[in-house]
């Protein structure tokens, strides 16, 4: 076996990420925060896609509900992150449990479409809330507060997001190494064999769904704290499509692929919109090209070069 360079690559990336707020200006820090938040959401979606093995177009429900719940609680006077965030995560988990119990009764295309319907449902619901600004959305007066870290400083928020993202990466890596994670992946490989062994595939799919939803919900919490402005477009199929695009740009089934894909996406979005108002066409064409011309996302291709045959890093 050749030397595995994926760990050094990971460490280098992480070090750069930690150094960023001390070398970059506030514009860069904000952009990077956005990248990391979408990276976390993409990672959550990819957990479901790659390990549970099903495609959901509905995970934006959890992004939106995480974001909106945070905003509403904050505006209701609860400011402490230590209080608000656990409540929101619990709320998202319960919502995911209910949605998952319904949606996972079906499979394949039906599952894809029912999750799509859920996210559209939430979109229309949010859009019709006049109190929340309808289509225009509304702004959130302030970020949540933490005891020792002043989140109103964008650098601190960035560092917190970075640490949480690394935590999520670590959590996924750990879950994958446990019997629970093995059962989830076994169910993706062959649900029939899993049930012939005495394990109920439904339970593992459902818990995988809830787990991935909570990750996306955490991204939603951070989204509110970063932008302080929410619109119903946080739910709905466009953003679902974009998040999946981030996943496959970087590469599904690896821990860094979705994160780097999200970073690339946000960067492109930002750069293209400076060049032309029609940047969406560019992104669309890029997406078509990625699907048609490349077998895998750029990080996965690179990771294979760096570390021998195994695509999973």
């Amino acid at each position: 076996m050749t030397r595995d360079l994926r760990w050094p690559a990971f460490v280098l990336l992480a070090a750069t990420a930690f150094a960023l707020p001390f070398i970059g200006d506030s514009y860069i820090v904000q952009l990077a925060t956005r990248m990391l938040i979408f990276g976390m959401a993409a990672l959550g979606i990819d957990f479901f896609l790659a390990y549970v093995g099903q495609l959901s177009l509905g995970h934006t429900i959890f992004l939106a509900s995480g974001a909106y719940l945070t905003a509403l609680l904050t505006m209701a006077g609860l400011e402490s992150a230590l209080l608000v965030w656990p409540i929101v995560l619990l709320g998202v988990a319960l919502l995911a449990l209910a949605a998952g119990m319904l949606a996972l009764r079906t499979g394949g295309l039906y599952f894809i479409m029912i999750t799509l319907a859920f996210t559209q449902m939430l979109f229309f619901f949010l859009q019709s809330q006049r109190g929340l600004g309808g289509d225009e959305g509304f702004s959130v007066p302030q970020r949540n507060t933490l005891p020792l870290l002043d989140l109103s400083d964008p650098r601190n928020l960035y560092l917190l997001v970075l640490v949480l993202l690394l935590g999520v990466i670590g959590l996924i890596a750990w879950i994958r190494a446990t019997p629970f994670g093995a059962a989830i992946e076994a169910c993706r490989d062959n649900a029939q064999r899993l049930s012939a062994m005495g394990l109920d595939p439904y339970g593992y799919r459902l818990s995988g769904f809830v787990f991935s939803a909570v990750i996306v919900g955490l991204a939603g919490i951070l989204y509110t704290n970063n932008t302080l402005y929410l619109t119903p477009a946080l739910s709905g199929w466009y953003l679902s499509g974009e998040l999946l695009m981030m996943v496959i740009l970087g590469g599904s089934g690896s821990l860094l692929g979705p994160v780097l894909g999200a970073a690339l996406f946000v960067l492109l979005q930002e750069q293209l919109s400076h060049i032309t108002p029609h940047w969406m066409a560019g992104l669309g064409a890029l997406l078509v090209a990625r699907v048609m011309l490349m077998k895998d996302g750029f990080w996965n291709v690179l990771a294979r070069r760096l570390g021998g045959d195994d695509s999973h890093s």
Partner: peptide, 30 residues
């Protein structure tokens, strides 16, 4: 576009056609 996608999974089909949606919507604007 679509012919090579028949043998692929739903994800690739959805995303490639989603890309087309973005392109066509923008062409209409242009």
């Amino acid at each position: 576009i679509f012919r090579p996608l028949y043998a692929r999974g739903h994800l690739d089909q959805l995303l490639a056609s989603f890309g087309l949606v973005l392109v066509f919507n923008e062409i209409a604007v242009m």
